[in-house]
Design a binder for these strands. Structure first.
Lengths: 345, 345
DNA sequence: TTGAAAGCGCTACCAC
DNA sequence: GTGGTAGCGCTTTCAA
């Protein structure tokens, strides 16, 4: 608050002071076709612009060009490392190409005018959309979009652009790690049964089991959603079984599971190993520090932004890009099963 | 991607189809001075607008009015509940007043053109700024701003608008809680020594001690920054003392302290109680679940947005608003000191 | 109660 | 090489 400074300088003012036409200033300032401007003129203009601290008026440019050079990203939560990493990645790529990123946070409960609003008001040239909603909801939201968009870690039948993480492979690796420690009875704490990602993770889990000739036991699978509380609740099912390890779909549900087990008197990790998908500083803060399989969420943001920008530039890119999971991070939450492990609670 | 739909309808098209002038359409559509329009005309216009799915072009309006109806908020991190809550609060108030919120994430390391860029390019009408930077850095960044701004949880000498949390009172309450459990040797895990907030927290800690006639012991204070790793490192100082409890400045540094102590073989909370300022779901995920004093961060965002908007509307509000801390949340990390507690490690 | 017209600040086309 | 100029789609006087 404070500092009142002179009005912002306009192109016309620069032109007047440099004694040239606005069109010339415009050409010079965008560095475009430099060769067609006399060096002397250009220097004079540059000097004046600098002296006046000229900055192009973004709004005027956007109106004239019918382009905002802004990408929108809509995420369901902000305080979630998955999304903040994606934002970071997208932001970097966007900046590299001269785009800004308009972040729009959209609570899942809330009616979803975000996509409609952003695109219909001409605020963005394109949209990056992450969603935890059910397919039909997402689809109807997207129907309102009148700009190109790319989906983050979602696939929707049709020609929608999207970049997806290979959750199936990540789940397979996580499960495999547990098996390599000697676990045979491995529980899975999954996501919403209908969801694409939940299905993929379950499939990866089963694939790992199959490869090791361990029969699949539906009792060892507890589906919930990806929240802390769901983790707490769902793990109770698993606690009744003879599982010695759990492969959880997310960090947060793993945290819930661990909290609940400890509350019920379990020794961790001795009586139950836990591994989760995704990685964040947060995994290290838990007790025991959580083993994970990393997921390249920042890269997902980067790739998505690239995809969108290439689309905006008139290219016709491959509609879906899949990203392989990152490496396994072994911390303290996964150990070999105890001989004579606790039998249910 | 997908769905190509007709060009967006413009005011002129609506006007043509309704057989009136654009100015009339404009008046009607903004619902302004409704009384001065014949009902019949208005209905016809409304109908056409709806049929054409007309949406005002945001850019054109912004250019014409020299206002973007957009507020910018710049935060140092996104995946931090403190900032995401503030964003949520600000977003709500902004929406209520017809403003959008442009979120700008600015890594602390990075040079800080964000403020300059946002304001100088006329992208925002005003700025909400949260920063973890040192005063001088922040001040020089702000010097570039040519729109009104309000500081979040910071005060800078001068007339800057700001809304601050009462960290001092929160620290006092947290310390008091520890004392009420019987602790007398209480350590403080603080922030960067120069920082305003760090000072306030330290002051609150001392105030609580004074009120209970417990002498202040500089050995019981470890200043670091607010990170997990700093928490780990700083707590080692405290571990050498006879402290039986720790009042940590943030959730994250508390988490670091707990992790480090446990690694060194301490029993928590029996051998060391820990309490932190701020609250988030995250506190519940730690082990032991962390006791905290809540801080009204979402309200901070709300109030800041209100302050800014009132300033933008030409009012001349009180420059600084202080928000009292929220309540004490007692979880599992704070217990009475053990008789004959462990003497150093 | 409605219409006409003047721009907001910029870019891009067409002259010279 | 440089200048003139026509708008982008909207709001807002001023007239009628």
């Amino acid at each position: 608050m404070t500092k009142k400074q002179g009005r912002k300088a306009t192109l016309a003012e620069v032109a007047a002071m440099a004694e040239v036409d606005v069109s010339t200033v415009s050409r010079v300032l965008r560095g475009q076709s430099e060769q067609r401007i006399r060096a002397e003129t250009r220097d004079r203009i540059l000097e004046v612009a600098k002296k006046l601290n000229y900055r192009a008026n973004y709004t005027a440019r956007a109106l004239r060009m019918s382009r905002t050079f802004t990408l929108g990203i809509v995420v369901p939560q902000l305080d979630n490392p998955v999304f903040s990493a994606a934002i970071r990645g997208a932001e970097n790529v966007a900046a590299q190409h001269g785009y800004s990123l308009l972040i729009s946070h959209r609570d899942p409960g809330e009616a979803g005018p975000t996509i409609a609003k952003l695109s219909q008001m001409n605020r963005v040239d394109g949209l990056l959309v992450a969603s935890l909603d059910a397919d039909e909801v997402l689809r109807s939201d997207l129907a309102e979009a009148n700009v190109p968009y790319v989906l983050l870690n979602r696939q929707l039948p049709g020609t929608a652009l999207s970049v997806v993480l290979d959750s199936r492979e990540a789940a397979r690796r996580a499960t495999e790690h547990l098996m390599s420690l000697g676990h045979r009875r491995i529980g899975h704490l999954g996501g919403r049964p209908g969801g694409f990602n939940a299905q993929e993770r379950l499939a990866g889990y089963r694939a790992a089991l199959d490869a090791a000739n361990i029969p699949f036991d539906p009792l060892l699978v507890a589906m919930g959603d990806y929240t802390f509380d769901a983790g707490r609740v769902s793990v109770r099912e698993l606690a009744k079984t003879d599982a010695t390890a759990i492969m959880a779909a997310t960090l947060v549900s793993a945290a819930g599971a661990m909290a609940e087990l400890r509350l019920a008197g379990w020794q961790l990790p001795q009586e139950m190993s836990v591994i989760a998908l995704h990685d964040a500083l947060f995994a290290e803060m838990l007790f025991p520090a959580l083993s994970t399989v990393m997921m390249p969420t920042e890269e997902m943001g980067r790739v998505a932004a690239e995809l969108l920008i290439s689309k905006l530039s008139g290219a016709d890119p491959e509609p879906v890009r899949a990203l392989p999971p990152g490496r396994l991070i072994i911390r303290d939450s996964t150990v070999a099963p105890r001989i004579g492990a606790r039998i249910s609670k």
